[in-house]
Design a protein around this nucleic acid. Structure first.
Lengths: 127, 127
DNA sequence: TATATGTATTATAATTCGTAATACAAACAA
DNA sequence: TTGTTTGTATTACGAATTATAATACATATA
């Protein structure tokens, strides 16, 4: 797994690791059910402390992105069969982003075009 | 100005203040050119230290949302006349959000419907 | 002349972040 | 069995961040 970390960023390392894994899952580079490197392996690969990776994995587990099993290790959570909608936390983040765009002078059309562009970088679930 | 702060949140107070002001500007509750409360006034209103408010104002200024003038105080930045597009930082945040949605099992259609819903809470610039 | 403004400085306490060194039970391979 | 690896928990440490507090300053305004 290839993760790009920015040591000079003000975003905590465990958050950067979490974001990169979410991006990889969203883009389909990590598929549902696929296993992730072990905590110690990933820590060694990217040159950080294993507890930092553990914190990222625990966060991803609590957010519902990963299943962690002592036998199978950490793996990407299988997609739900039924259709799921956005939760409150997601809408809050999205609304803040829409406000930032609007306050910066982006029209609704430009904002929605950007959303569409972002969505098209993601992998689509097969029906 | 009404700001909702959550003291038990893990989001820093100055960030919460910044977010609330961006939301107010995006929704049109604060209009371009409109004056904001003074640092000391807002600090007194919401019961935080004035340096905490100052930090939020300085952040908003550095992000281009506010103009701060010693004569006029802090005011909402007037909208640019020309059409503006999304910058790299905005697209990065949007892409992460799209990845979170996709990893959670939201289809592209559901994600874009949520984006449209968020956009419609915002005020539209008059042409 | 007073007052109010944004801003800068310094200090202090609490919390967070990253690392480090262990330790443990569970699972697996030999 | 024995040995290794797994996720996880604990404790400690230093550095950075966060929030508050008490001032101070030059500028602008009444």
């Amino acid at each position: 797994m290839i993760l790009k970390l920015d040591l000079s960023s003000d975003i905590p390392l465990y958050q950067q690791i979490r974001n990169q894994i979410v991006l990889a899952v969203g883009k389909g580079e990590l598929k549902p059910g696929e296993s992730l490197p072990t905590v110690r392996q990933l820590a060694s690969d990217i040159g950080v402390n294993s507890m930092t990776v553990n914190k990222a994995y625990a966060l991803l587990k609590s957010e519902g992105y990963l299943l962690i099993d002592r036998r199978k290790g950490a793996q990407v959570c299988p997609l739900k069969e039924e259709h799921v909608g956005p939760d409150a936390d997601f809408m809050e983040k999205l609304t803040l982003l829409a406000a930032e765009a609007t306050a910066k002078g982006l029209t609704k059309e430009v904002f929605l075009a950007a959303c569409k562009q972002a969505a098209e970088k993601m992998s689509q679930k097969e029906e």
